[in-house]
Design a protein around this nucleic acid. Sequence first.
DNA 1: CCCAAGCGGTTGTAAAATGCAAGCAGTCAC
DNA 2: GTGACTGCTTGCATTTTACAACCGCTTGGG
Lengths: 143, 143
Amino acid sequence: MSPTEPRSYCPINLSLEIFGDAWTLLVLRDLMFSGKRHFRELLQSDERISSNILADRLARLVEHGLLTRSGDPTHRQKAIYSLTEKAIQLLPVVVQIGAWGSRWVPDARKLDAAARRFVRQLQEGGPRLWARRMDELRAVHLR
Amino acid sequence: MSPTEPRSYCPINLSLEIFGDAWTLLVLRDLMFSGKRHFRELLQSDERISSNILADRLARLVEHGLLTRSGDPTHRQKAIYSLTEKAIQLLPVVVQIGAWGSRWVPDARKLDAAARRFVRQLQEGGPRLWARRMDELRAVHLR
DNA sequence: CCCAAGCGGTTGTAAAATGCAAGCAGTCAC
DNA sequence: GTGACTGCTTGCATTTTACAACCGCTTGGG
């Protein structure tokens, strides 16, 4: 609610105060790569986030200007969450966190084949592919 | 202690289960950029981490293979923490998290001039400079 | 018009993580 | 031997998380 004093003004710390927790980046991941836009869609992640945490994280992300919340014309009480440019700029970070995990965390080998292909493509594509995806997100989420 | 089942096998999630919290990446930041190697040095961060949390994070990082802990020849009970290759490979992620914060979090303007110069150099240097820093870290921390 | 299904959340409560301050045994230089 | 320094540990209050149930409103189908 009230803007609280940051622990320090180090840019790394300032970033982590926004998304340095277990759930926030997973929510952004789903918005970026799974085309999810609604509360109940986001609730269906593999990691089984609980609804109160999701509600809290969405509110924080809106508060920090990474998401906007708007109404769905087709359903009066349906909310649509949209990424802002500020959030879209985090895509390379999210991708590289995934790349690191895929390379260095042994459990990543247990990922199913389809997901693995997806991850590999995203990395072989490199920054140019990320930029393309960012443009796609802009087209869908901004304006 | 006992390896617990991950919430999912998504590489992003696997990464976040290692460093997806408020403190872990700050500890790595200090090891990577401030030349800190000892417990009490790491305790002196701007963010005022408390000693029990620091002890816990160091233990986890060792457990996950991002750090090794060894004795200091000059002082029998002095511990030296060293980055592993697995951790050094996280440097680009750490740098880019800082770059994002520096660009998108308004409070980053309050950073002092010296630190700001450091941040700007690190970004203008780009991947080549990061690679150089990674090599320096390898020289100091490995073998 | 009614009702089941879908919508974005809230609420209550227990368990876990965090933050804070103090303390502790071993080591070292003098 | 003593005073400063080492890497932690302990106890306790506060905060955050996790889990499950529930809620009022909206919508489409019959």
